[in-house]
């Protein structure tokens, strides 16, 4: 009898945690979407009004558009630079360990530090980037103050922060390609580019897929970057999904509406990831 109980005792911490911090919150979150509540006063049933509000909420749509802009810039940049640097690291070079460690450094440092740093680099008058532009005779750019530039600026910063991880993942991928493939291709007289597109790219397809999925989830999880750098501005051009949930929930205490946002974004993430999976599997 005791013996039979042991496995359940061992998994019980997980089950308790799952029920309290996952299952109940998911259920409660859906329930909250039909109510208005500020935690202090009693809950008020409002039917579908939170959903109606969501679809008419310009900032919600803006946050989706911002996320889209972020992803359209972030994902290609990430893949191109990670692949390029991984290819370079995969050659017979000295100090490989040092270069790899240097590229990886931003990955382990807190996003808060990275954001504070880039806020200075992006500064309008004294920021290093604008000083550089002025030096070569170009006009200053409002990296964080011009609504057209603000989200792309954040996307570039996020690439700088994350690309080290993908360099390492691509490097692992590149090293799984059997060298015989390249040797055979060389015998047939294939060029560098041909080898890259015909051999390397198909072999590291799974890694590319992973970059796309992780970056998508990352785009929808963007928070500290706009929170510190821009507060969501200028003109809501950097309001992200999580920043908007945070504002509705912890600034205005609209728990019902914040839950609706969270629920909707979660569904959207799952849907987008599923579509990407389908799309990429078909590609193979």
């Amino acid at each position: 009898m005791r013996k039979k109980l042991i496995p359940y005792l061992l998994v019980s911490p997980y089950l308790i945690h799952f029920i309290v911090f996952v299952a109940f919150p998911v259920g409660f979150s859906i329930y909250l979407t039909f109510n208005n509540w500020n935690i202090i006063s009693p809950m008020e049933y409002t039917g579908l009004s939170n959903y109606k509000r969501l679809f008419q909420d310009a900032i919600f749509w803006k946050s989706l558009l911002n996320t889209l802009i972020f992803l359209v810039i972030h994902i290609p940049l990430q893949i191109i630079f990670a692949l390029l640097l991984a290819e370079l690291l995969n050659q017979k070079i000295k100090f490989r360990g040092f270069f790899r460690a240097a590229f990886f450094l931003p990955v382990i440092v807190s996003g808060v530090v990275v954001t504070i740093l880039w806020q200075q680099l992006y500064g309008f008058d004294t920021g290093l980037l604008n000083r550089l532009l002025v030096k070569i005779g170009l006009a200053k750019i409002g990296w964080l103050t011009d609504p057209n530039w603000s989200m792309p600026s954040i996307a570039v910063m996020a690439t700088w922060k994350n690309v080290g991880l993908y360099i390492v993942l691509f490097l692992v991928g590149l090293q799984t390609v059997p060298p015989q493939y390249y040797e055979a291709a060389e015998l047939e007289g294939a060029t560098h580019l041909q080898k890259f597109f015909r051999i390397t790219l198909p072999m590291i397809n799974p890694t590319i897929f992973m970059v796309v999925i992780l970056s998508t989830i990352g785009g929808f999880s963007l928070f500290i970057e706009p929170y510190v750098m821009t507060g969501g501005g200028p003109l809501n051009s950097t309001v992200s999904a999580v920043l908007y949930i945070y504002k509705q929930g912890f600034f205005y205490y609209h728990m019902g509406y914040a839950s609706t946002l969270g629920f909707f974004f979660a569904l959207l993430i799952l849907a987008v990831v599923m579509i990407q999976k389908k799309f990429i599997e078909k590609d193979k």
């Binding site: 996952v22 979150s29 909250l32 999580v242 929930g249 993430i269």
Partner: peptide
């Protein structure tokens, strides 16, 4: 659970903590 986005549990988890 691993695929579940945290956006959905954020608000209710906060309420639990309260």
């Amino acid at each position: 659970t691993m695929t579940l986005p945290f956006q959905i549990t954020l608000i209710p988890q906060y309420i639990l903590i309260v």
